[in-house]
């Protein structure tokens, strides 16, 4: 055990240098996912037929294919038609587009769970559909979606590791490199696992705090 600690302390700085990449990738992708997810959820609930169909096809494609395939497609496939991204950008786009599909579905469920009467009351006051959505439905739906959204956020934090496959030097990539240099794969991946657990636990606690802070009786 103490041997592992010595190993961990020796290699920790190199691995930790990947943490900003991992977190940056995660925050960017989650942000893209939240914004696009909101638009998709709106389209799936309130959109007219063509808009609904487009949003539905999007969700089905991005939920129905592996994220790694999507990432390879964006990083390795798109250059063939002249669209080239650096690895980190490709990873942000791939994870962002993928999580958008899931976030849209969670949000759609949360919006649907807000009683109909809330929108009716907003419309009766004189609000338009969009005003009612922004002022009345969304604040309630966002509160209701936090538990599911937290799951998604934690899942995606771990999924940033697949960016390693297209050459992003986030923490998993760095761990693998140490592994091949030292041949101490057991030690290094134990170290990496510990770092992921620390990050996800902090994120989980922060989101739990947020959930408590914005909670309202009866919601």
């Amino acid at each position: 055990m103490s041997a592992w600690f010595d190993f961990a302390i020796e290699h920790l700085p190199y691995v930790l240098l990947g943490v900003p990449t991992t977190l940056g990738l995660w925050v960017s992708a989650m942000t893209i996912g939240a914004m696009l997810g909101l638009v998709l959820a709106w389209a799936r609930i309130y959109g007219n037929r063509p808009i609904y169909v487009i949003a539905t096809i999007y969700v089905e494609i991005f939920r129905g294919t592996p994220m790694l395939v999507q990432m390879f497609f964006i990083y390795l496939g798109l250059p063939e038609i002249g669209i080239v991204f650096d690895p980190l950008t490709a990873a942000v786009i791939a994870i962002g587009l993928n999580t958008a599909a899931y976030q849209a579905e969670y949000l759609r469920g949360a919006v649907r769970s807000v009683p109909m009467g809330q929108m009716t009351a907003a419309r009766a006051l004189g609000m338009g559909k969009f005003q009612g959505f922004v002022n009345i439905i969304l604040p309630q739906a966002l509160r209701r979606v936090i538990p599911q959204w937290s799951n998604e956020a934690i899942l995606e934090l771990k999924y940033t590791s697949i960016a390693y496959a297209i050459g992003v030097t986030e923490i998993t990539a760095r761990a693998e490199k140490i592994g091949y240099e030292t041949f101490q794969f057991f030690e290094v991946f134990l170290l990496i696992a510990a770092i992921y657990v620390v990050m996800t636990s902090i994120v989980a606690q922060l989101l739990l705090l947020l959930e408590k802070k914005v909670s309202v009786p009866g919601l």
């Binding site: 009683p115 009467g117 809330q118 009351a121 309630q140 509160r143």
Partner: peptide, 8 residues
């Protein structure tokens, strides 16, 4: 009839 106050 059922008030429909804004819950949040």
């Amino acid at each position: 009839q059922d008030f429909n106050l804004f819950t949040h």
